[in-house]
Design a protein around this nucleic acid. Structure first.
Ligand SMILES: [Zn+2]
Ligand SMILES: [Zn+2]
Ligand SMILES: [Zn+2]
Ligand SMILES: [Zn+2]
Lengths: 146, 146
DNA sequence: GCATTAATTGAGACTTTGTCTCAATTATAT
DNA sequence: ATATAATTGAGACAAAGTCTCAATTAATGC
């Protein structure tokens, strides 16, 4: 997986620097829900001089290449850089009370994607399907608390 | 529509203050893609003393009541408080190059929603389906620019 | 290997977003 | 009208994200 990304970077004429490689390593092993701040922290464990600017620059670069997708950037609490490098689409449930995320695999948008793409002349690179509501736990709490 | 919201607010025991009404008015007329900053600016045109804190507090209140949903908060450029007070679900295409958003109406998640809800014990209140890629215009540009 | 060169980097100033506290205001019920 | 508790604005604060610029470094050709 990392190799694919590295290839695509080089194809597009970008350098393979140490700070970049550190970010990529973090992304590869860190799952799909890391915040930029977390990526920075983990990246500095690999390459201590890594700077915030470089994290953002690298994320932007990968976004432009269609290799990942930032979801809900900026949220202070549950800030999530949702990395969808493994799939074309990304799917989860999000609890609006505790902020937990539960991913799921089913994808039901294939046909719709084709329709929209044709109708609107849009070149679709991926998608995000997010359900939001109350998770099993928060569903119980909610009534007691309020 | 505004009346429904006002009713629900009062039912839940919240006051009908001027700053709140200003925010509601903005939301009603401003479409579904306003950022908190835009809501503040437009709100101050109606009620000049309106403060940022109140905008956020009102948005949070409405979220808790399930009346709207913030999407991608915090993004500096295309910051979007996606107000989905009109529908259970919200659907759009997002251009990763120019940031434009094209809404669409088709909803294909009904069955999946039921399945997931049952399987995971999640009380689903709404959903966001977002396709991302290049819009018609940017699709052309892209090659020229780069 | 070594030099050249243009891409990339880190530092840190800066802007914007979002949160919090507290004293002053105000909607509501009586 | 008064009492009371919710709500407010101001402004301090914290965190996220952007930008500039001089210094570094990966790639290319020798
Ligand atoms: Zn996710
Ligand atoms: Zn929860
Ligand atoms: Zn939308
Ligand atoms: Zn576009």
């Amino acid at each position: 997986m990392l190799e694919t990304i590295v290839e695509r970077l080089q194809e597009a004429g970008h350098r393979l620097t140490k700070p970049r490689m550190a970010v990529l390593q973090v992304l590869e092993t860190g799952g799909e829900h890391l915040s930029p701040a977390e990526i920075l922290a983990r990246g500095q464990a690999i390459y201590p001089a890594l700077s915030r600017a470089t994290v953002y620059r690298t994320l932007e670069l990968l976004s432009e290449l269609g290799l990942l997708r930032l979801i809900h950037p900026g949220e202070q609490r549950s800030s999530v850089a949702c990395v969808a490098m493994h799939h074309h689409g990304h799917h989860h449930l999000l609890c609006i009370h505790c902020g937990c995320m539960i991913p799921f695999e089913e994808c039901v948008v294939g046909e719709l994607e084709a329709t929209l793409s044709q109708r609107l002349g849009f070149e679709i690179k991926g998608h995000l399907l997010e359900f939001y509501g109350l998770c099993k736990e928060c569903r119980g709490h909610q009534k007691v608390e309020q």
